[in-house]
Design a protein around this nucleic acid. Structure first.
Lengths: 388, 388
DNA sequence: GGTATTTACTTGACAGCGGCAATTAATGCC
DNA sequence: GGCATTAATTGCCGCTGTCAAGTAAATACC
């Protein structure tokens, strides 16, 4: 970090409660007038003016002279905006066999991106790879590398973001790995460790569809089926690190055994792997998910049936989630959503059949997520940990 | 309210953030030393001393001279306690055919209790009955009636506690009834309106088993099956007023039609009514729930099977709830729990079969609730609205 | 074209809150 | 009776955010 970036970081970190709320509002809502910030945060206009001043001085916020004249009487508003390029954040998504890393600005727009295969899932080897990929990004960024202000790392599993410990990750085969601390020793910027779905949730809450909602959920469909939950403005993490396990709700046929060992899990019938298996069994040959999609589009009854069943289960699972926690919006994301046309109708029907009362008013939106989007989520998590 | 009660109310209401947190801690944890209050709240000892002083002066808190000598060196702690009788709260639970009201102290210990049949579910008639039953309680209280500081009312359905409007209550047949305001016109004390399960949740959180937990759920079994959810220290209300509808999770046989019109709801197979129906059908005669309990205890296979199925469903539903939201504790309450021996084993087995990973560590406790306990919950809600 | 009106933002005085550090209080131990 | 130890209190002080008044920049009206 060069001098500017360091002083900006300390400014944000040492900000008062009101100060960080103001910064958060500008970050997620800019351009926004001071009076709107006051309304949003419940602070007085005076407090906003005072909180904005040091942010402008530090170059984090831009306060252009008023220009917008809309014919209404009164002094025109002069909205302030976040200076997107004031800081660069790095987001890293760790998969079993691959690492994806992005460098983003403060709006999580990707500035540079790198991928790197993982030869081993040993923590030290992963740390080595992360260090290297971050170095690659630094080179790719050139001059703006000096603006790097933090690194966010997203890992699937039970992650304690406050201590930076991966308590358990089945996919990686890890238990109680202090990944945050280990990485912090190797990197000169503050490291934030988060569960991958939580990170994606944070990203959507601050920079995506979830913006402005007090409560929303994000359901990811892919190799696994998971969900992240934001209620009352906070992430739900679960007392024992387990929450949002929508893929392991027992809604499917109880004779189906899930890879997790339990019976009747949604994931056992609706993950891409489960669809592959179902179609392969029906056709008597090995079918990949892409083939299954093609077959279903071509009208093959077995493939169509498998997708229908998956959609029905996911719709029912979402209804379950909504009946219990009542979010405003559910975002369906993840890699599996690219074939959402195969899902949509059945999914919505199943949801509506089981959503209770006013819960049907919950909006269900889709947003396909690439692996790069997961890394952007990690970057968003790093931004959030900087502000909070 | 006499002068003392009024001034105590204003003292609590006008307290600073730290002040009300200190009062809350004394209320729920007394007797407690000042130093422990500081640790609990994260405040400095000095701040605690300053916050406690006016509470003692107002007679809300008792600060007896230190007496406890335990052989350890150092000045002995002199714990402070809430003066339970400093205020009297009234809690009212509205059922379809009956109203139950209690007067409690600040620890929700019942001081007086009244019941009254409801002749009509018309809101005005209900308000009339509540006014009368409160008047009865006032008479029953005698001198301590002057300490009444608030009234809490618990109604089943979608209740907006911030505005005091019953947005929808199927059981009562109400929609958009401003019950809070209407009652406030008739009663000289602040009126708090809450959803009944939420009220019970608040009661357990402050004065019951949920004390000290950051997140917990309460599942009530009876005529209906519902649940209240506390996550990150706050009640989950649902964006559209729907949350905790565990009775309407689609986990049961899809051929079963629930009274709500949906298929496969837990409630359609596990509520007391559903058990009555199942046993009656199997035996070819009308059986009440009490008879069904007796039959099951006597070893009747049909009755036993009905309870087993109900227990299996409720256990699965709780696993669903826990997999999604990860509470520390689940309390099973409500009237139906008195026969919990018929449920327990099967319920726990079903829970453990479907709880994901560390979620099995979630404790499941039972607490039978009488109708009076629901009214106590309303009283707890009134206490909480006073403090917050 | 000036004056009034309207709305957005700024400034400075001020009060309250809560932390810090020193002080007082109450005990056990030698 | 000192000394160590822990609890509670007190005064000081800085920080925060509100209030109320003032300034800025536009339109509306005569």
């Amino acid at each position: 970090m060069d001098h500017d970036t360091a002083s900006r970081t300390t400014l944000i970190r040492s900000a008062s409660d009101a100060g960080s709320r103001v910064f958060e509002t500008i970050l997620t809502r800019s351009p926004i007038s001071r009076i709107d910030i006051a309304r949003q945060t419940g602070l007085s206009q005076a407090a906003v003016t005072k909180a904005v001043a040091p942010l402008v001085a530090a170059g984090l916020v831009d306060a252009p002279p008023a220009s917008h004249r809309d014919g209404t009487p009164g002094r025109p508003v002069s909205p302030v905006s976040i200076v997107l390029e004031a800081m660069v954040m790095i987001g890293v998504k760790v998969n079993v066999d691959e690492i994806i890393a992005v460098a983003t600005d403060l709006g999580t727009t990707v500035l540079a991106s790198e991928r790197r295969a993982l030869s081993s899932d040993d923590p030290h080897s992963v740390i080595e790879s992360i260090t290297e990929i971050v170095e690659d990004l630094r080179t790719a960024l050139g001059d703006s590398a000096s603006a790097i202000a933090g690194v966010g790392v997203a890992v699937s599993g039970d992650v304690d973001s406050s201590t930076g410990v991966v308590r358990e990750s089945n996919i990686m085969g890890w238990a109680d790995v202090p990944l945050g601390d280990l990485l912090q020793e190797r990197l000169p910027w503050p490291v934030t460790l988060e569960n991958d779905v939580h990170a994606l949730t944070i990203g959507e809450h601050w920079f995506g569809v979830g913006l402005g909602t007090a409560s929303f959920a994000i359901v990811t469909i892919g190799r696994g089926i998971g969900s992240g939950l934001h209620l009352n403005g906070e992430v739900v993490s679960g007392a024992f690190g387990v929450a949002g396990e929508i893929g392991h709700l027992p809604l499917a046929d109880p004779t189906l055994v899930c890879p997790c060992g339990r019976r009747g899990c949604v994931e056992a019938a609706a993950s891409t792997g489960a669809i592959e298996t179902a179609v392969s069994t029906a056709l008597g040959r090995t079918v990949t998910i892409d083939e299954a999609v093609a077959l279903a589009h071509a009208g093959d009854p077995d493939a169509d049936g498998a997708f229908r069943e998956a959609a029905r289960l996911i719709g029912t699972a979402i209804a379950t989630l909504v009946n219990l926690t009542g979010p405003e919006v559910v975002i369906i994301g993840g890699e599996g959503v690219s074939d959402f046309d195969l899902f949509e109708k059945t999914l919505r029907d199943a949801f509506e059949a089981h959503a209770f009362g006013a819960a049907v008013r919950c909006r269900i939106l889709t947003r396909p997520h690439t692996f790069e989007d997961w890394a952007r989520g990690a970057s968003a998590a790093a931004i959030q940990s900087l502000v909070r």
